[in-house]
Design a protein around this nucleic acid. Structure first.
Lengths: 114, 114
DNA sequence: TTGTCATTAAACCGAAAGGTTGACTAATTT
DNA sequence: AAATTAGTCAACCTTTCGGTTTAATGACAA
């Protein structure tokens, strides 16, 4: 098994709620491209810096992002493993769903065959 | 590709926020075992029926659950495909994360080798 | 037909969320 | 040293959330 399987203690509550906001999801998307300061992260949004900073705080609380200080700025990056709890939960139940959908696909395919 | 790849128009917002509540996640877990009426769904929780009904409403709005009426009761079941949008989003970015973690695992393993 | 059962609708409540402003700290520039 | 820049903190405001109660609807049972 993988080493990191041990390590998630993220609460699904915090993670899902953090993801339930479009601003924060876009921030994560940005951060998947590159590390960014809070200021850079805030720029695309019509929002004060303080507002954006609060969003970063929520992502950090949820364990999705880390902020480290570099001079007077804070550079944010994705925290590896942060999404694991959420991924596992979703995977588990979407497996159930897609199994049914695959069965449907199968039925349709067989329908097309005859 | 699969037939159902076309079909999700669920807003990630609604889905993630629906999942951001432990009561609602437990309801989904229950429903993955069997179809249940609103009353049955409500029972495990210390909550009025009306409260539980509202939760079901949120899950329905998010496209995760369907309610069909049977006599005077409403029987709830998981709506296939409801989790796909969320799954894809999470998968996409947790892939990024796990890639880094796998690299880390790899590095550790090679470390152990020499 | 009268009553009871399952559920929803509506009005309301306190707490949390998303946002703002303004004051503050700390690093940088001039 | 003074002024500017990056960011946070605290207080505040409005909207949404999670929950309740009470009333209404619609099926079923007596």
């Amino acid at each position: 098994m993988f080493n990191y399987m041990v390590e998630y203690l993220q609460s699904p509550d915090l993670v899902f709620r953090a993801l339930g906001d479009p601003t924060r999801r876009r921030m994560i998307e940005q951060l998947s491209q590159a590390e960014l300061t809070v200021g850079e992260l805030a720029e695309p949004f019509e929002m004060t810096l303080a507002g954006a900073s609060k969003h970063v705080g929520v992502l950090e609380q949820a364990g999705l992002v880390v902020r480290k200080k570099r001079g007077r700025e804070r550079v944010c990056s994705l925290r590896p493993g942060g999404l694991l709890a959420a991924r596992d939960w979703v995977e588990r139940y979407s497996a159930f769903w897609t199994a049914r959908l695959d069965a449907l696909d199968q039925a349709l395919k067989e329908d097309g065959d005859e």
